Simulated scan of single mutants.
Amino acid sequence: MSALSERRERDRAHRHRLIVTAARELAETEGWEAVTTRRLAERVEYSQPVLYSHFNGKDAIVGAVALDGFGELAAHLRRARQDAPAPGGALRAVCRAYLAFAAERPALYQAMFVLPTDLAFAHAETPPPLRAAFDEFVRCFHRDDERRELFAEVVWSALHGMAVLSDGGRIPADGQEERLDLLVAGFAGVPAAPREPERDR
């Protein structure tokens, strides 16, 4: 690749990052309804055609923000799991970290799980950050249990419902800890995953 081509690639990557960052900031301050190509073009000081050269519409922009979010979520859950006081505490720690992530980043969480995107879930083409986040739940269960992915799906589904219903005022936000206790207790008889070696941290 020539020096000119490399520079063009760097410039394109820089514009891409500016657009994604601007979309996330605008969504966090004014909601996703405020995120339009016109508003984004004003923020990043590029024309709307330049935006469309990177993203073919709002769904694609939301998807890019969501992809960032899954990378952050995976890292957040990994820290919680690895810092759990005992193998049996990993599931509770990961669940609590997930609910905290959703509550502290509502606009980002909407992009990841509520708004339409072109991201593929539970598919051969699932992007690595999505799989990495899901795997943090899987690792809370014993590696020899063939149901561990099923357990992870059920736990994630329950947490998502708790997060969305609480955020929407459908269930009292101050009851999350009790719900979490009930959810984790339901898996109390499931063998916990052995703690991973320190070098994996």
Rank of each mutant, 00 (worst) to 15 (best):
A111L: 03
L67V: 14
A97M: 02
T126V: 15
F55R: 01
G168A: 13
L67R: 15
E125C: 09
E136S: 07
A66R: 07
E72K: 15
S166Q: 04
D145W: 08
V114D: 10
R131K: 10
L99G: 02
D83T: 09
K58C: 00
G168C: 02
A100I: 03
F113Y: 09
P129F: 06
G71A: 11
A122S: 13
E72C: 14
R147H: 14
G88Q: 04
E146S: 12
V94W: 06
A64T: 09
H142K: 13
I61T: 05
G161F: 06
V164F: 09
F137I: 02
A122I: 10
R105M: 04
A173R: 13
A120L: 07
D167K: 05
A93F: 03
D144H: 12
G71K: 12
D68S: 09
D59M: 07
E72F: 04
R139Q: 12
F70A: 10
D145M: 08
E125T: 13
R139Y: 13
G161R: 05
P127H: 13
M112V: 07
E146F: 14
V65Q: 05
M112P: 09
G57M: 00
G89C: 04
D167P: 07
A66V: 11
G71N: 15
H54G: 01
A132N: 07
F134W: 07
